[in-house]
Design a binder for these strands. Structure first.
Lengths: 115, 115
DNA sequence: AGATTAGTAAAGCATTTACTTGACTGTCCT
DNA sequence: AGGACAGTCAAGTAAATGCTTTACTAATCT
């Protein structure tokens, strides 16, 4: 949990780009070559390579080159870190609301009708 | 689910910045004025205002101004959208792995020791 | 009334980003 | 061997980003 902040930083930064998010989405359905990833995208192969490099640097994706084709696969742990951060924020917020509700209910019981 | 993509886009973009993420983190522990949000941050108040505006535009935060102080609070639905997207990716990936495992186990049973 | 406080708006600036194109390197197919 | 294929590297560019400073407004305190 020490360098977790750096992981989160890189992951969120990588996911901020819609192209990269669509690549992650595609990879969740199975590994793919860079060429395959580029297929549906309206940009040059070189641009896609750059996105893949960004994703790899963030830990969201890993890849391996065999022959002349580089196969990319999703690395779910970085994705889990993102998920966990968002969930933590939400549940902390929720817990606070619950405490607030309890407190109000309690003071209403001992001190009813006070404005 | 139609304009959900736009929501996700704005939310991830907003969360890509570490300062904004720390603001969200702070707000998960309860509402705060812009001044309070700025307190621990190494930048001018004007800069923090800009971050708050970005967060508000993304739907992650809402705010209300009473008197001269603007109070910000977390808006958990946008955060939930982020959480859900990441979870969807991960579970899709996991489901694919499971199917793969089943398939391999099955073919090993009917076709053992094949190279 | 006058001074401080909280926030806003606008303009400017350095850096980063998301591309492009062009040249190049290996690998695979006939 | 020769050509197409998959990817890489480098340089350049236009736009976006994260600040700053200055000047301002409106609310609150003394």
């Amino acid at each position: 949990m020490v360098n977790n902040a750096a992981v989160l930083d890189r992951a969120f930064h990588a996911l901020a780009d819609p192209t990269r998010r669509s690549i992650v989405d595609r990879l969740s359905r199975g590994p793919a070559s860079v060429k395959e990833l580029a297929e549906p995208l309206p940009m040059s192969l070189a641009a896609v390579v750059q996105h893949v490099q960004a994703l790899e640097g963030s830990g969201l994706v890993s890849s391996e080159k065999v022959g002349r084709v580089r196969t990319c696969r999703l690395e779910p742990s970085a994705l889990a870190a993102v998920e966990r951060w968002a969930a933590d924020c939400r549940t902390t917020w929720q817990a606070r609301l619950d405490r607030l509700g309890d407190h109000l209910a309690e003071s209403a019981k001992t001190n009813p009708k006070k404005k």
